[in-house]
């Protein structure tokens, strides 16, 4: 694929345009990367497409093969897989807390002990998310900045 960078004047709107024969996985990855750099994720709600700022996402959950983005008051479905989002959002303070869940560390209000060696993350929205004991070590390390 030929890559071109064109300088434009300050008055024009900056655009990243991908001209391709087919929307392949590679194209999708480039699109995702650009959107992520911009700080947003694509999601659908009531058949409408939205660009959700990453900072608005409290947590991400995978349910029966579908991935959902949870904000303070809305739930968006996204085409990304949880493992893709985990990789993409590492630098955005998102961390895996169970097999099917990623949590935004900046949205955690407090952490409480739960039964059986697990913990509960109380989000600033009031929601409670279980932190599986397999991921507690990684959470401790992330919070310590390791």
């Amino acid at each position: 694929m030929l890559v071109e960078v064109e300088r434009i004047d300050k008055d024009s709107k900056e655009v990243v345009l991908i001209r391709c024969h087919e929307v392949t996985e590679e194209v999708r990855e480039i699109e995702t990367f650009v959107k992520m750099r911009h700080g947003s994720l694509s999601g659908t709600l009531d058949a409408k497409q939205y660009e959700i700022p990453v900072t608005d996402v409290y947590y991400i959950e995978s349910v029966e093969g579908k991935t959902f983005l949870y904000t303070s008051d809305r739930v968006f479905e996204t085409s990304y897989r949880i493992y893709e989002l985990e990789e993409m959002l590492k630098s955005r303070y998102f961390l895996r807390t169970s097999k099917a869940m990623l949590i935004n560390l900046m949205k955690i209000q407090s952490i409480q002990p739960a039964l059986n060696g697990r913990f509960t993350a109380v989000l600033s929205s009031g929601e409670k998310i279980i932190i599986s004991r397999s991921y507690v070590k990684a959470l401790k390390a992330a919070l310590k900045g390791e």
């Binding site: 303070y93 560390l105 900046m106 955690i108 407090s110 952490i111 409480q112 002990p113 739960a114 060696g117 913990f119 507690v136 959470l139 401790k140 992330a142 919070l143 310590k144 900045g145």
Partner: peptide
């Protein structure tokens, strides 16, 4: 005992969480 052990760990994590959020906000 198990609950108390986890409570101590949770207190430590809350302290680290506060520092983490201050640093990155």
């Amino acid at each position: 005992f198990s609950w108390l052990k986890d409570s101590v760990a949770a207190r430590g994590m809350n302290r680290d969480l506060e520092r983490f959020q201050k640093k990155h906000s």
